[in-house]
Design a protein around this nucleic acid. Structure first.
Lengths: 233, 233
DNA sequence: AATTCATTGTGTAAAATTTACACTTAAATA
DNA sequence: TATTTAAGTGTAAATTTTACACAATGAATT
């Protein structure tokens, strides 16, 4: 065993970053979970996370976690909350900063890292007990994304690339857990003028092909700076 | 110098809690600032804060800070954000969890703690450079309270005790930095049915006395659980 | 080649909400 | 008792939200 130690005059907690990555498969909302290899909570499912290293920012740490534990990169991340109950980790005092993101499941092939037995997209309606206080962290994330979607265009902020309006609506329905009126959804969405229509349509669908759109980030920034509220639902 | 050390196998950052306490004096929005006694940033103004102790939760730490550094207690606190840039403190890696609250300035007599030269309520329009990254933290807090006030009844959540509707409106105007229509504000507010009218009126005011109201927390919880949105502005 | 199937895309009228706006009432003070 | 100051109140017009049905498209099937 290595016998090098880091010494401090006062007690320092350990700090981790845990990631809640929501995945949308076109139908349902999933979350990325890993199965732990080591103690504590060996074999239990948990959110991917890592200890913060000396010279990295919290957000860089989140990016490193996703790269290392799930082979995912280039995801828009948002800080969720910091969990610091003194007893949340049996080993020592660990404070966890949680980050969340949203991707299309099809865009990434999950590959378990060295510390995991498995990694998978789990439907948010099928979550059982997770390691540590991760069930609570996940519930906080679900509440946050449901609340946030009502007044910020999450689908675009968190989803890169192109999408059709019906796809985006399905995402909204998956997050909110209810159906929305197609005409009204489209009307309100387009009236915000934060979408750029691409000269492209769906291919090989056995019905009328939908147009692809892209989030107009520039226009979005302008509206945000003007303090305009984008309520979509 | 004390030679006792805490040893860890991996580097641990220090963790602090910094508090942004907004104060409303009936007219303007202020923030509680302290003038630092010691290095680093000695004599500069800063947000009150403290290192997290081994057995306390983050929120308890925030409460301790307010008690010790400002003689304030019983304030509703909300976690704002966690700031973790590796270089934000010149001494060592320090991650700061920021909490914010809102009180009436008249309800508390600020008393500087041992580590401070002074403590005061500073108008948010008169903030100059603060120690560390505290200017950035404060700006984040101002943005948050301005955003939040639009869809959550902050005035009540964060203000204890009784208030009149015009007082609450002044708070809203101070936070948003613009005037609101008196009749419409009152109408919308009362239509939410989250206020209990008290059988009490203002005393000794040289005009028609306003009724006191109280936030009906129970009713508020019910509405929140139903997913109802309380947009006030 | 024609038909079927599935989903996209579109408009309008009714209902609900938001906005703009002015006079009367109450309490203290002169 | 008159004056001053801010509280309290209603309505009509404008805007936004909601509910709702049919034509268009493209692949698959006959």
């Amino acid at each position: 065993m290595k016998e090098q130690f880091y010494k401090y005059q006062y007690p320092h907690p350990a700090v981790t970053v845990d990631c809640i990555i929501f995945g949308f498969d076109g139908q349902n909302l999933k979350v990325m979970l890993i199965q732990r290899k080591s103690e504590p909570f060996a074999k239990m499912w948990a959110l991917p996370g890592a200890f913060v290293e000396e010279a990295e920012s919290l957000e860089s740490c989140a990016e490193r976690v996703l790269q290392k534990e799930g082979n995912i990169s280039g995801v828009y991340l948002e800080q969720l909350f910091t969990f610091g109950s003194p007893s949340r980790d049996p080993r020592e005092r660990v404070i966890s900063v949680a980050y969340m993101g949203l991707v299309k499941t099809a865009d990434f092939e999950l590959i378990a890292g060295n510390d995991e037995l498995q990694i998978e997209w789990r439907d948010i309606s099928a979550i059982s007990d997770l390691a540590f206080d991760h069930s609570q962290i996940l519930q906080t994330a679900i509440n946050r994304i449901r609340g946030k979607i009502r007044y910020q265009p999450i689908g675009f902020e968190l989803m890169n690339a192109k999408f059709t309006i019906p796809q985006l609506q399905q995402l909204y329905e998956a997050i909110l857990g209810k159906t929305l009126d197609r005409r009204n959804f489209r009307k309100k969405l387009l009236s915000m003028q934060i979408l750029k229509q691409l000269p492209e349509k769906q291919q090989n669908v056995a019905h009328k092909a939908a147009s692809y759109y892209q989030f107009d980030r520039e226009r979005y920034e302008v509206l945000m700076n003007e303090g305009i509220y984008l309520e979509l639902v």
